[in-house]
Amino acid sequence: MDEHRYKPTTHAGGAWSTDEQHFSPLGGLVVHALDRHRAAAGDGGLVLSRISYDILGRLALDECEIEVETVRPGRTIELLEAVVRIAGRPVVRARAWFLARLDTSAVAGGPDDRLTPPEALAPWRMSGLWPGGYIASLDVRPVSPPRPGRTTAWVSTPLDLVAGTRVSPLASYLALVDTANGIAVRQPPTEWMFPNVDLTVHLHRPPRGDWTGLDTTVTFGPSGQGLTSTVLHDVDGPVGHAQQILTVRPLGT
């Protein structure tokens, strides 16, 4: 497509409805669009530290257009906004904070527990639980057997985010984060719906490697809301956190 338009393949097919897009690769595509916008403006060495996505409506498995604007320019702090449109209608709005890259290794600290490396783990056929081309495209390696509401797993894919285009490691990493809501289901998706209406990611360092580590807990409240909370990992340890708010309801309502 052109520099602002992208057409999904069947590998982006959704889990709740196979004629929709799964949000996960679209979330990575937004980061790719942010990267292109910053490169065109002259990348000042800033790093993505938070991105929040609001999912505004149905994500049809169709061509999308992504527009990016700089909301708050700066040499050390910058805020960008991206809007994804399908058939001319806004379906995702995202805001991303970029902060200055500085050497703070002398004071770096925090939890540093590492997950069992993915190459030491057996694959899990996640498509036995969820339909859709996106889920079928994944290589999922649970650290331990998945439990209702609690799973830790590595996720990767052999597919390019954008065919024939090199994307940043961060875009590839974030293209897998939304998978978290599907790895630790509390109730069978054949009986209950619990789609997320947002995704917010905070990072304390850039991730590296080809695997996205998801240490995920899912909570359902008593009044129709739920929360998927994830500690994000790469091969070197934790890199940040992700949160997804869920609308919980019986299937068919």
Rank of each mutant, 00 (worst) to 15 (best):
P238C: 08
G132H: 07
V239N: 02
T190N: 11
L115F: 10
T247L: 13
D215E: 15
T228A: 15
P238D: 04
D234W: 09
V30M: 00
G164I: 14
P206R: 10
R75D: 12
T179K: 05
L56R: 05
D43L: 06
L227P: 04
D35C: 05
R114G: 03
M193H: 12
T253I: 10
P111S: 09
V107I: 15
L34N: 03
A40K: 04
G110H: 14
R72Q: 13
H202N: 14
D234Q: 05
P123C: 12
D19C: 01
Q225L: 12
G28W: 02
I51W: 02
R205G: 07
V71C: 08
R125W: 06
V143D: 11
E67Q: 08
S144P: 08
E3C: 04
S127D: 14
S52H: 02
W154G: 00
T216H: 06
H204Q: 04
Q21D: 11
G42V: 00
D215L: 12
V47I: 13
T70E: 14
A100M: 11
D19F: 13
A175C: 14
S229F: 03
G182L: 02
T228V: 13
W192P: 07
I66E: 00
Q187N: 11
A100W: 06
G182F: 00
D43N: 13
L176S: 00
G149R: 06
D236N: 09
L170R: 06
A100H: 01
L129F: 08
L26R: 01
T212G: 05
D178G: 04
G27H: 00
V185L: 15
S229A: 15
E67H: 11
P148G: 09
L59F: 11
L251K: 12
Q21C: 09
S49G: 14
F194N: 09
P148F: 06
D43S: 12
L59T: 06
L48T: 01
I135T: 01
D234I: 02
T212R: 07
T200M: 11
R150M: 12
D210W: 06
F220I: 02
A122Y: 01
L99F: 09
L56A: 01
L199F: 10
A15T: 00
E67M: 07
V218N: 14
T157S: 15
F98S: 07
H22P: 08
D43F: 10
P118V: 04
V68Y: 05
R5N: 13
A87P: 01
A180E: 10
T212D: 07
L48Y: 05
T152E: 11
S144R: 13
G88N: 07
I183C: 11
D62A: 15
T157P: 01
V91T: 12
W154V: 05
G209V: 11
D2S: 11
R36W: 08
L161A: 02
R141L: 11
A171Y: 07
L99K: 06
S137F: 05
D198F: 03
P142L: 01
Q225M: 04
D113Y: 00
L115P: 15
I55G: 06
T216A: 10
R75P: 09
L59G: 03
T253H: 10
L199P: 06
D234T: 01
P145R: 05
R150P: 03
A100L: 14
R166Y: 01
S168C: 03
D62H: 15
E63N: 04
A60M: 08
G213T: 05
V239F: 02
V197S: 08
P238T: 00
